[in-house]
């Protein structure tokens, strides 16, 4: 395609109108504590996998809420399920279950 020096940056925006948030509603049902997240980032800071690679739970949880599914499927695989994040979460979110259920959802909706 010819480069006209500009393009419409569709992918930059979170299209809240068209995004599919079924994963979020699914998680809300099986692990309601997901709603408590304030994005403080403690989970990401303590993350065992996060020391080796870019894996960011609080960001994933935000993507889930916004319906930005593209990022989630690959990211969620990096978790070692060690559970440190649920231990440090100030809101008492059951983060481990969220990750497990997200994987299950993605696996069964392939």
């Amino acid at each position: 395609m010819a480069d006209f020096g500009y393009k419409i940056q569709e992918d930059r925006q979170i299209n809240y109108d068209s995004n599919d948030r079924t994963l979020f509603y699914f998680l809300k049902r099986v692990e309601p504590s997901i709603s408590l997240c304030i994005g403080c980032g403690t989970c990401s800071a303590t993350c065992t996998a996060g020391q080796f690679t870019q894996f960011d739970l609080h960001k994933i949880m935000l993507y889930v809420r916004r319906g930005e599914k593209v990022h989630i499927a690959n990211e969620i695989k990096k978790c070692m399920l060690c559970g440190k994040c649920s231990l440090v979460c100030p809101k008492g979110i059951n983060t481990r279950n969220i990750i497990f259920q997200t994987r299950k959802f993605i696996h069964s909706n392939k």
Partner: peptide, 15 residues
């Protein structure tokens, strides 16, 4: 400094 998880948290969940 950094650790690799022992694997048991995955194992007990059947992974």
């Amino acid at each position: 400094d950094s650790s690799i998880c022992c694997g048991r948290p995955l194992q007990v969940l059947g992974k």
